[in-house]
Design a binder for these strands. Structure first.
Length: 110
DNA sequence: ATCATGACCATCC
DNA sequence: AGGATGGCCATGA
């Protein structure tokens, strides 16, 4: 791959602390490409095959919905992983999303 | 350059 | 509430 764009995405996703989640849009924005939110999600398709594997389960859409759960090995894996991180998932969406939301901007701080 | 494909987002109905 | 539409943009053929 070597695509710089994906690397940036992975870099941020890997920085997500345990028990926290973020949104595709937020990541895109921190990359300076707010409109490229789709690309973030697109990049996540390679998350499972990326070399340090990225915690894609900590990335949800702007509503805290587990949109990409079906892209995991098993659809149940995502919420299961989140549950282990102390993140409650109800009806495919993050409970207390605003509370567990992690802002990438705070870690980028360029 | 053009077309098709999205793990998105906002808006409209 | 839930479906449809358009926009946006990187990637690969």
């Amino acid at each position: 791959m070597n695509t710089n764009f994906y690397e940036q995405v992975y870099e941020i996703v890997r920085l997500i602390p345990k028990g926290r989640v973020t949104s595709y849009g937020a990541i895109a924005k921190s990359l300076g490409a707010a409109k490229s939110s789709r690309m973030v999600g697109y990049a996540m398709r390679f998350a499972g095959m990326a070399h340090p594997k990225v915690p894609a389960h900590r990335v949800v859409n702007s509503s805290g919905l587990l949109t990409g759960k079906f892209h995991f090995e098993t659809p149940e894996m995502m919420e299961d992983l989140l549950a282990k991180e102390n993140v409650k998932v109800k009806d495919d969406k993050i409970v207390n999303f605003k509370t567990v939301f992690w802002n990438p901007m705070e870690e980028i701080t360029e």
